[in-house]
Amino acid sequence: MSGTVVRLALVALASGPLVACGAVADLTGAVTGGVAAVATANPIVGYGIGIGVRAVTTTAINYAVRRRQQAAQDEVAAVIGALEPGETRSWKIEHDIPIGNEHGEVRLVRTVDSALATCREALFSVASGGAPDAPRQWFLTTACRQGDRWKWAAAEPAAERWGSLQ
């Protein structure tokens, strides 16, 4: 069921940036709970089932979205690892479900020499869609070599700055 729900969530997400993905879980839970309440004539059973379905749906969607984000990070980190100083290369991510594909450029800013690992700081741009004049935005991040590949290395924000991230 979670696969169907995730697809539903992605379609909802693509239909407009203002549609919150979390609403899908709320609606799925509410509809399931309502049906269960009517079928059993017991609001507690309906409530329990509704909340349970909502919890499972939310977790499934979060997991799927995080996997997609990780795939994009791995793409950018791999390009950062392949860059020569001063070089600019392009990156792109094409998901299995062709929603939210992104592309852009990566520029190496500096090499972070440390006693622990080889890391790099880089600027990368993100543009959505295939139009050549698609709006793009630049971001700064870091990547470190882990074994034979490069991984995203920007750590989490300070807990005091999480705010509504959680």
């Binding site: 920007a154 300070a158 807990a159 700055r161 991230l165």
Partner: peptide, 10 residues
């Protein structure tokens, strides 16, 4: 203290 700020909202 930890000084890394949150990611851009985008």
């Amino acid at each position: 203290r930890w000084a890394s700020a949150e990611p851009a909202t985008e």
